[in-house]
């Protein structure tokens, strides 16, 4: 199968009551997610990410358009549901239950039982690094542990597809790194991951393809390499006066960061490296380092959203 999730012209309009304005939460979304990839679904709050995910899960219904999952149009069928694991953002799990009990409950909903279920519980707890806390009540779990147990419930049926809504939000750096490692391992096992996130650095590190959504419309779609094509130069110098910086700015060299007595300059891609270095020399700047630099996902995201905002204003 070349595609695991496919949407065509998927749209969602929330009709307002009492003659208010309808909300176009999603407009004509054409999206394909391929097997074994990590697809990052990005967008500011209210851009339509969760609406898309909810439609994929059958929690809300499209106004128009179609969804196919694993080649099936009946997305509520047991075959589809058994192959989807979902981790919602900020979900609550009853804290009177133990880690293994909550997994037993979700496993039973998949029709699992007996020794098979107990084995699977042990496997997923091992997978998410929670074996040590399997008998502990959820009320004693940290936020990171709760997120991991949430991921474990999504994995309990060993699904082909995982849909994760903000899996790293609110986690400390260590927990975030651990979650990232788990997700990368799942991808290596051949699972397809769709991740909706605001943590752009995390996403850039693990995702294969990215879709950026704004005001319900898909603005950008492609692999990280396809999207982050803008390359420029980063020059680190000791210091520079405001007057010099102003002159350099007119020529395409802008001050980006100032820390620890060092100044980082960013050279626009329109200016070639030789000319940039010559300009620095002319202004007697003490060079510390010169390095090629690729646009980050965060910069692409901000630029894409900014452009979309400008278009909608125009």
């Amino acid at each position: 199968m070349s595609v695991v999730i496919e949407t065509k012209g998927l749209s969602k309009i929330y009709e307002s009551s009492f003659r208010g304005q309808d909300v176009h939460a999603l407009t004509d979304l054409d999206l394909t997610i391929k097997p074994g990839e990590i697809f990052a679904y990005l967008g500011p709050n209210g851009s339509g990410k969760t609406t898309t995910i909810k439609m994929l899960l059958g929690l809300i219904f499209p106004t128009k358009g179609s969804i196919e999952i694993l080649g099936l149009k009946d997305i509520a069928s047991a075959k589809v549901r058994k192959n989807i694991g979902y981790l919602p953002e900020g979900a609550y799990y009853p804290d009177f239950l133990r880690g293994e009990e909550i997994l037993r409950f979700y496993g039973q909903l998949y029709g699992l039982g007996g020794k098979k279920l107990e084995t699977r519980i042990s496997e997923v707890l091992e997978e998410v690094g929670m074996t040590h806390a399997r008998k502990r009540l959820l009320r004693g779990y940290s936020k990171g542990m709760r997120q991991r147990i949430g991921l474990a419930q999504a994995l309990i049926s060993d699904p082909q597809i995982l849909i994760l809504d903000e899996p790293t939000t609110g986690l400390d750096p260590i927990a975030r790194k651990e979650m990232r490692d788990i997700l990368a391992r799942l991808r290596d096992q051949g699972k397809t991951l769709m991740i909706s996130s605001h943590e752009l650095l995390e996403v850039e590190l693990i995702s294969d393809r990215v879709g950026i959504l704004y005001q319900g419309k898909l603005q950008k779609l492609g692999t990280i390499d396809e999207l982050l094509t803008d390359r420029d130069l980063s020059i680190e110098v000791e210091s520079a006066s405001e007057e010099v910086l102003s002159t350099l700015s007119e020529k395409g060299i802008t001050a980006e960061d100032r820390a620890g007595g060092k100044l980082t300059l960013r050279v626009a891609s329109t200016l070639n490296s030789y000319d940039a270095l010559t300009l620095c020399k002319e202004h007697q700047l003490n060079l510390i380092s010169v390095a090629p630099r690729r646009e980050t996902l965060e910069e692409l995201f901000v630029r894409t959203v900014g452009e979309a905002q400008d278009r909608s204003k125009a």
């Binding site: 549901r81 609550y92 909903l109 949430g150 049926s157």
Partner: peptide
């Protein structure tokens, strides 16, 4: 409200 329903209805439960 606490989103437990999302985790249940995304399973093979009508």
């Amino acid at each position: 409200e606490n989103k437990v329903i999302y985790t249940v209805l995304s399973k093979p439960v009508r």
